[in-house]
Design a protein around this nucleic acid. Structure first.
Length: 786
RNA sequence: UGCCCAGUAGCUCAAUCGGCAGAGCGUCCGGCUCUGGACCGGGAGGCUGGUGGUUCGAAUCCACCCUGGGCAACCA
């Protein structure tokens, strides 16, 4: 994995980049690639927004060498009631902190209010919008439900003049809130709820933080957002999956507001999966709840996933960037494990954080063979050997020092490699130490350890080559710098606190903040106040920017080191993996059962006429049950099929092509719009049946037909697609393919039989799909087994 | 039969418009080591949600079904 921001192969590739590549190739937007990050200034940004920021600004950087790129920062401030300048500023801080620069492209939706109004007037004039005077409850009622169609509002057919006049008055402030709204006139019976005449403008006599009291009508998101994109000449408008449905209105607004010549290069919306992190909450309301109830310290509490919280905790922006690139941009919902995030942090911090020693829970150790006054200043490297840096700092070794209480066990388990009575350990950078005596107070608590060091082991290596298994960090007692360490753990005890029956605060982890009074080695005084460091064997830390002072140092734990020894109970054990595998297998079984039980006959959905047709297809024409039902159930398809049948009387062949090939192309066009008719279709199928062309060749002809129409025979001749089923003609091609791929041949002969598909593909490509596949397969097999 | 989206290794994602099912993380084992860290090497882990169909060939195309999520705000 890479920690740099230069896009590396693998991490930058996602379906959006594919789309951009294609647009660049086809010149949809010339050489422009313009994205935008459009937050509403009504809350603080969190790591979920970071993913969007990294995506949008990342595109600007990644395509800079090939295209004219920009990324706008746009405040989507169309709702005066919740927005404020305070949020605008915090959002700008967050974007900058993440390392991105919007340059002069800082925009506000509220600056476009006049244009939104003008476009609305245009819609009204076109008859595409109307003023509705139903109240809120009535509008809801008229809209219907997901199962029942809506009904048109009684005001739906007001004249253009009346609508214009009312809308003007709405703007002029002549009505109260809620008296009227402006609606798009689309389709009240649409199966898509969003298209049942969506609201465009509502009346709101409210003070806007930027526009003051200039406006009393405010546009809705579905109307404003596409126009904002269009006004700014955005090319790729990226948003999260839950806006998928809204894309229909987005497209509608584009097509009804823009001029015809603007349509081809209009912005298009693409949806990607939002970031869900385990063991935390991300919604604005839940975050606000935590703060208002004093369950955390504020928006910048280091346990929060807010950008300000992460920044205060010490997470480097570069780590967030690489994490966001790592999690992937797809269309499938997902929840990312917190361990993934922590890995990204360590990966970023490891090569950039100098090592120092800190003891968080001190236990005093006295070296009985070391004088009170003697100080050995050791030149200790800030970096481990595998990092290519070598600054050092002086570390004092003295008679008394502290070690971590945890690092000593009086009665250690077998796999414990640290200090125990009579055992020798290595003191990092210093000497080997052997524990000889345990001192305790009257309660039995250990207060002190006594023992000796081996003076020959200075530099922590022994001349005789012995090497203790354990290495401990330590801090000289006489030179110790006291400090406070704040250790943070996940805020919630469950991975999905917001998806449970109980209120999410029930799952708050009581130990999410753990404060320790510890000691630091003196060299930390020489570090910059914002220097991130690794406390050896513990984790990455930095001074709290708000509360740490030179006299009272406070360090935040950014992330602990990976710990492979005991302790961590939610690590995935082998048993747990096995259990999950079994669970998954079981669920699959159950699902198989259910899906078998739920299976219905497609003929069940046919009406009487269709059923009659279905029976005729099945009984008279001998079509398979399924094909008969599919074709009979679609009137236009059935007409097409029957027309083709008059041309060429091969029912099942035509049915196969109709169902399996034609139907697949009919997702975004109708039969009427096809550039070819049933006759051409029948000819094509006939060519296949008579073995004039292969199925693969037929696919190619079909593609041409779909694109430009034409005569199949002519296409076959023009492209030289006639089937080759002559062994002598094929053999040289096959030999050439095998010669060109000696590695694959070797692997095939080694047992990787799946490669036959690869060879077939090569041969079919080489012959432009004309080779008789059965024959080709046979010949390839012969050659390979020879 | 409301509409839309998605189901690939434990997790996050790939698979060049039908042609070798792969990568990172995690896990296990080994190596290295003055951090139980980092790094290096290796292993395990898959009926591509299911059943049929089309095809020489299906994760990919078709049908039906199953599971999860989204959509019925004068929020965005």
């Amino acid at each position: 994995m890479s920690t740099s921001d230069t896009p590396t192969s693998g991490t930058r590739d996602n379906f959006i980049y594919d789309i951009i590549d294609e647009d660049l190739e086809e010149g949809t937007y010339g050489d422009r690639v313009v994205t935008r990050f459009p937050p509403e200034p009504n809350g603080y940004l969190h790591i979920g927004h970071a993913k969007s920021i990294v995506l949008n600004f990342g595109i600007k950087h990644d395509y800079a060498d090939r295209a004219d790129t920009r990324c706008h920062l746009r405040f989507d401030d169309t709702n005066p009631e919740t927005e404020s300048t305070e949020y605008v500023d915090s959002i700008k801080d967050a974007v900058q902190w993440l390392g991105y620069d919007w340059e002069e492209h800082e925009y506000y939706a509220s600056d476009y209010f006049e244009q939104f109004y003008e476009y609305a007037v245009k819609l009204i004039k076109q008859g595409d919008a109307y003023v509705d005077s139903l109240d809120e409850a009535e509008i809801r009622e008229y809209r219907g439900t997901v199962e029942e169609p809506g009904r048109p509002s009684p005001y739906r057919d007001r004249s253009v003049e009346e609508n214009l006049e009312l809308f003007r008055k709405m703007k002029a402030g002549e009505f109260e809130d809620g008296e009227h709204v402006l609606r798009a006139k689309i389709d009240m019976s649409s199966p898509h709820m969003i298209m049942r005449d969506p609201l465009l403008f509502r009346i709101k006599h409210a003070h806007h933080y930027r526009q003051g009291d200039d406006w009393c009508i405010y546009p809705m998101y579905d109307y404003a957002h596409p126009l904002e994109d269009a006004i700014e000449d955005i090319t790729h408008s990226l948003c999260t999956l839950e806006f998928d449905n809204n894309r229909r209105v987005y497209d509608w607004v584009m097509e009804h507001c823009l001029e015809d010549d603007e349509i081809p290069s209009r912005p298009r919306q693409y949806e990607f999966n939002r970031l869900n992190l385990g063991y935390t909450v991300m919604s604005k309301t839940k975050l606000r709840h935590l703060i208002e109830e004093d369950l955390v310290g504020g928006w910048d509490d280091p346990r929060l996933p807010t950008i300000s919280g992460l920044a205060r905790r010490g997470v480097p922006p570069s780590a967030i960037r690489s994490f966001c690139r790592d999690v992937g941009v797809t269309r499938s919902q997902s929840r990312v494990q917190i361990g993934h995030f922590e890995h990204a942090l360590r990966d970023d911090l490891n090569p950039t954080s100098p090592r120092v020693m800190a003891v968080l829970d001190p236990l005093k150790v006295v070296v009985t063979n070391w004088d009170e006054e003697e100080i050995d200043w050791i030149d200790a490297n800030h970096w481990p050997r595998d990092i290519d840096k070598d600054e050092t700092r002086p570390v004092p070794f003295t008679r008394e020092f502290y070690i971590e209480r945890d690092d000593f066990r009086e009665d250690p388990p077998d796999d414990f490699i640290r200090l125990a009575p009579g055992r020798e350990v290595r003191l990092r950078h210093a000497y080997f130490f052997t524990c000889e005596k345990v001192v305790r107070d009257e309660d039995g608590t250990i207060t002190e350890l006594r023992g000796t060091i081996d003076r020959d082991t200075r530099g922590a290596t022994a001349p005789d080559g012995r090497s203790p298994e354990g290495t401990l960090h330590w801090v000289s007692a006489s030179h110790a710098v006291p400090f406070e360490a704040r250790l943070y753990d996940r805020l919630f005890e469950v991975p999905d606190p917001d998806a449970r029956d109980a209120h999410f605060t029930e799952f708050i982890n009581p130990d999410s903040l753990n404060v320790r009074k510890g000691v630091l080695e003196p060299s930390v005084r020489d570090l910059a106040s914002d220097q991130r460091v690794q406390f050896e064997r513990q984790g990455y830390f930095w001074p709290d920017p708000e509360e740490s002072t030179p006299d009272a140092l406070v360090y935040n734990q950014i992330v602990p080191l990976r710990d492979t020894w005991g302790g961590d109970e939610d690590r995935l054990t082998q048993d747990e993996l096995e259990r999950r595998r079994r669970e998954k297998e079981k669920q699959k079984q159950e699902q198989r059962q259910r899906s078998l039980e739920g299976k219905t006959d497609p003929a069940k959905y046919l009406d009487d006429d269709q059923r009659e047709r279905f029976e005729r297809y099945r009984d008279d024409l001998g079509l398979s049950h399924n094909d008969a039902a599919v074709i009979a159930g679609d009137d236009a398809l059935a007409d097409f099929f029957e027309a083709a049948l008059e041309q060429y009387e091969a029912p099942q062949s035509l049915a196969n092509w109709t169902v399996n090939e034609l139907l697949g192309e009919l997702k975004d066009q109708t039969i009427k719009d096809l550039p070819f008719g049933p006759a051409a279709f029948a000819t094509l199928v006939h060519l296949v049946d008579t073995e004039n062309i292969t199925n693969r060749g037929a696919d190619e002809v079909f593609d041409v037909l779909l694109e430009d129409g034409g005569d199949p025979e002519a296409i076959v001749d023009a492209r030289d697609l006639r089937q080759v089923d002559d062994t002598d003609a094929l053999r040289p091609t096959i030999e050439a393919v095998l010669d060109d791929h000696p590695d694959e041949v070797a692997r095939y002969r080694d047992g990787k039989k799946g490669l036959i598909g690869f060879f077939m593909g090569q041969v079919m490509d080489a012959t432009n799909g004309a080779a008789n596949p059965e024959l080709a397969r046979e010949l390839i097999q012969d050659q390979l087994d020879a």
